[in-house]
Structures are given as structure tokens and as C-alpha cells.
């Protein structure tokens, strides 16, 4: 009886992952511990909480007559905040991951240990995701509690979905930052790439997209092209996902767009997951080939 390599490969990868799980968790735990010690966790949580509270308190003033719940207003404002801030925090966290260790000399030491290179990438990613997830959940959670602790389950559901989507957006940029960190030798170069990525995905892409829409007069672009252009930028996918959601959609201009697009929430989540997995896979393969 012959077994094809395809059916054989998957359990083997799985076995390898299971074996390196303790290592991955050890690496992730160290990442979190460093984040706590150098006040990254505290600083980002406080920053997100402070900005979220400001938005929440400002945003809660004019409601009551619009028909939207106050928590919904907060959810929408926080989603807009996320698009700028969360990618930036994620890139700041992750661009240093490999390049920084290489510069400090600890990368050589780490890889001299019985540690797989894939485990290094995944461990760093998981640790940083935990930091970002903590900061987003608790930072935004504080604001939501102040404004909407007695509001309905639907509003809380939308809020929770927004937080989850924000962490997912963070994961995308953590993966991109990690990729930048494995591609170059110096952390300053990795930092430059990280800033470039942020500018491109958060500012330039949307401006160019808007320019394209204006130039075309809003009619001649086929919907499929618009969908593709939205999916090609993780921040747009996030925008569509959170601002187009039921309950909050009516508050935003994106709500109108969301009605016409074929990009349903499950597709958008899949897009964001792919945006996380692809850079991670690329970083892993680049790192595996890298000569130290």
C-alpha cells in the first residue's frame, strides 16, 4: 500500500508543531514578560484607554435624538481610531522582533538552542498578539464600561465584535512587521519599513483609492474591482467589517457601501486572516533560509 506524500505531510507538520509547542509558549511568555517590564503593555493599554475614553465622552454628547445607542456611537468612533492606532502599535512592537535580537547578539544564542526557526517566529507573534489583545480589550473595554454598562446585549455584541476585529487587524500588522524584521539586518531599517507600511496601508492607499473613485466619476468601476481593491488593503477590510456591521452601519458612510459589496463579514474575516497568515508564512520561509 502506498501513501501519497500529500496525506502524509499534514500529520507530520502537525506532529512537529505539537513538539515545538512548549518552545513556542516559552518564547511567547518571554515576549509578554518583556512587554510588561519595559512598560509596553501598560503604555499601550493606557494610551488606548485614554483615547477611547475621550472619544466616548465626546461622542456621547449629541446622542438621544439620532436613534443610535451611545455604545454604538462609541463602537464606531473606536473603529476609526483603531485604523490609525492599532497598526502603528503593532508595527512598533513587531519590527524589532528578529532584527533587534540579531543586533543584541541574542538571536545567535537563541538559535544555538534546540529551537526551530518557525517556533521563533510563531512564539514572537503569539506573545505580541497577547500584548496587543490585552491592551485593546482592556483599553477599549474601560471606555465602553464608562459609557454603556447598562445598554443592551446587541450594542455590547457589536462592541465585542469590533474589539475582536481590531485585534485581528493588529495581528495583520504584527505579521507584516515581523516579516520586515526578518528581511533586513538592522532594526533601524526594519523600523523604516514599518513606518512605510503604516503610511501606505493607512493613508496613501485610501487616498489613491479615493482619487480613483473620484476620477472615474463613481460609475464606471465594476463592483468586483472595488471589492478587490478593498480586500487588498487590510485596513479597508477592517473598515468594511466593523463599520458596515448591523446596528452601526447606519451611522457611517461605509454602511451604504457595505450594502452593495459582495464582501460579507465571513469573507472579510477570511481576508484579514489571510493577511496575517501570508506574511507569517513568508517570514518563516525567509528566516529558515537566512544565513546567520
Amino acid at each position: 500500500m502506498t501513501v501519497t506524500t500529500n496525506t502524509d505531510a499534514l500529520p507530520r507538520v502537525r506532529l512537529q508543531l505539537e513538539r515545538s509547542m512548549p518552545t513556542i509558549l516559552t518564547l511567547a511568555a518571554k515576549e509578554v514578560r518583556e512587554g510588561i517590564r519595559n512598560r509596553w503593555v501598560l503604555a499601550t493599554t493606557l494610551l488606548l484607554a485614554a483615547l477611547a475614553l475621550t472619544l466616548a465622552l465626546l461622542g456621547s454628547a449629541p446622542t438621544g435624538t439620532v436613534g443610535a445607542s451611545r455604545l454604538d456611537v462609541v463602537t464606531v468612533s473606536l473603529a476609526s481610531l483603531t485604523i490609525f492606532l492599532v497598526p502603528l502599535i503593532a508595527l512598533l512592537l513587531s519590527h524589532d522582533a528578529i532584527a533587534g535580537e540579531a543586533e543584541r547578539g541574542t538571536l545567535l544564542l537563541l538559535l544555538a538552542y534546540p529551537v526551530g526557526r518557525t517556533a521563533v517566529i510563531l512564539g514572537k507573534f503569539l506573545g505580541q498578539l497577547a500584548i496587543l489583545g490585552f491592551a485593546t480589550t482592556f483599553g477599549y473595554g474601560a471606555a465602553a464600561l464608562v459609557v454603556g454598562w447598562n445598554l443592551g446585549a446587541a450594542a455590547w455584541g457589536a462592541f465585542a465584535a469590533m474589539v475582536a476585529a481590531s485585534v485581528l487587524l493588529g495581528a495583520v500588522f504584527l505579521a507584516l512587521g515581523l516579516l520586515a524584521s526578518t528581511l533586513v539586518r538592522q532594526r533601524s531599517t526594519a523600523g523604516g519599513i514599518a513606518i512605510g507600511l503604516w503610511l501606505f496601508f493607512v493613508l496613501i492607499y485610501d487616498m489613491a483609492f479615493l482619487g480613483l473613485l473620484v476620477a472615474s466619476g463613481g460609475h464606471s468601476l465594476p463592483p468586483l474591482l472595488i471589492d478587490a481593491l478593498l480586500a487588498l488593503n487590510p485596513t479597508d477590510a477592517y473598515r468594511l467589517l466593523t463599520l458596515g456591521m448591523a446596528g452601526t452601519g447606519s451611522l457611517t458612510g461605509i454602511g451604504a457601501l457595505a450594502g452593495h459589496t459582495a464582501l460579507t463579514p465571513p469573507i472579510l474575516v477570511a481576508v484579514l486572516l489571510a493577511w496575517t497568515a501570508a506574511p507569517l508564512a513568508l517570514a518563516t520561509s525567509v528566516f529558515a533560509r537566512r544565513e546567520l
Binding site: 518583556e34 541574542t106 534546540p114 529551537v115
Partner: peptide, 23 residues
């Protein structure tokens, strides 16, 4: 290694513990 600088904010025991777990 020739020049290695461990994370300055962690304690000696934490750093050594990390490497011990890896082994």
C-alpha cells in the same frame, strides 16, 4: 556568543529560566 546583551529589564533568574526551559 562573542557579544551578547540580555534584556536589561529582566532579572538574571528570569533570563536563565527562559534558557533552561528551552533546553
Amino acid at each position: 556568543p562573542e557579544s551578547v546583551s540580555f534584556h536589561l529589564a529582566l532579572t538574571g533568574r528570569e533570563t536563565l529560566g527562559f534558557y533552561a526551559r528551552l533546553k
